[in-house]
């Protein structure tokens, strides 16, 4: 980045609905994590007073449980096209996606990697999406049984505890990697801008999502250098 002195050009990547949905999802996830942490490990018992005692922690956990369910609805209602596109991308797997994982470890640890050209979502993002969808379903449905045990048979509630735990365990493990790659991994700042402002550095897009970039060029939305052709300046 620092080498390039010419003014940066940006290409639109995410809709407002996606940005909001993503942010609410992230904040809710984090809040749910923090409010449940003292129950997960006694090491964090000191968090109880912070939330106004166990009862307070339970109340907050339920409030954030509701906000955790919202993003999907926001995405569907305000950007149905984007939502469908996302789902379509998730079920589209090509050779480039499989090859991605051969190079990813090198990339992850900062060694020279020869990444295959990726589409709008790279294979790692797809996997992340899949796991988050799967775990969210697990967590939300098992959470229901835990919240309203009186409406479910005992066995369902008992399995609910297990599934909630598994769902959460998987989700948090993946989220750690996800946040690292977006915030700390060198070269991540352009990607991070994508989920905050909605657009990314054209050079970055070209480097990381070459197939998508080429598509944009082919559609005539940008030219080879990343200049926007359309008047659409808003993200």
């Amino acid at each position: 980045m620092s080498k390039q002195q010419k003014p940066k050009k940006y290409v639109k990547r995410f809709s407002k609905a996606f940005i909001w949905a993503h942010a609410i999802n992230a904040l809710s996830f984090f809040a749910l994590y923090i409010t449940a942490l003292p129950m997960y490990t006694e090491f964090f018992d000191w968090l109880y007073p912070v939330f106004g005692g166990p009862a307070g922690a339970r109340l907050l956990h339920r409030i954030f449980a509701v906000t955790f369910v919202l993003p999907t609805l926001i995405y569907i209602i305000f950007d149905p096209k984007g939502f469908l596109f996302w789902l379509k991308e998730l079920v589209t797997w090509k050779k480039r996606d499989v090859d991605f994982f051969k190079e990813f470890p090198k990339e992850f640890f900062g060694m020279k990697a020869k990444m295959p050209k990726q589409g709008f979502f790279n294979a790692g993002e797809k996997i992340n999406s899949w796991i988050q969808i799967f775990t969210a379903v697990l967590i939300i449905f098992s959470g229901f049984t835990m919240w309203f045990p009186e409406y479910f048979p005992d066995t369902v509630v008992q399995w609910g505890y297990l599934l909630h735990n598994i769902g959460f365990g998987l989700a948090i493990a993946v989220v750690v990697g996800h946040i690292y790659l977006s915030v700390l991994h060198p070269g991540s700042t352009p990607a991070f801008r994508g989920v905050i402002k909605g657009d990314v550095d054209a050079e970055f897009a070209k480097g990381h999502y070459r197939d998508w970039y080429d598509e944009l060029v082919a559609k005539g939305e940008i030219d080879e250098d990343g200049d926007k052709k359309s008047a659409d300046k808003t993200a």
Partner: peptide, 11 residues
């Protein structure tokens, strides 16, 4: 973003 991708992954 050199001639080939030094592609980053998840965001």
């Amino acid at each position: 973003g050199q001639d080939e991708e030094g592609g980053d992954s998840d965001e």
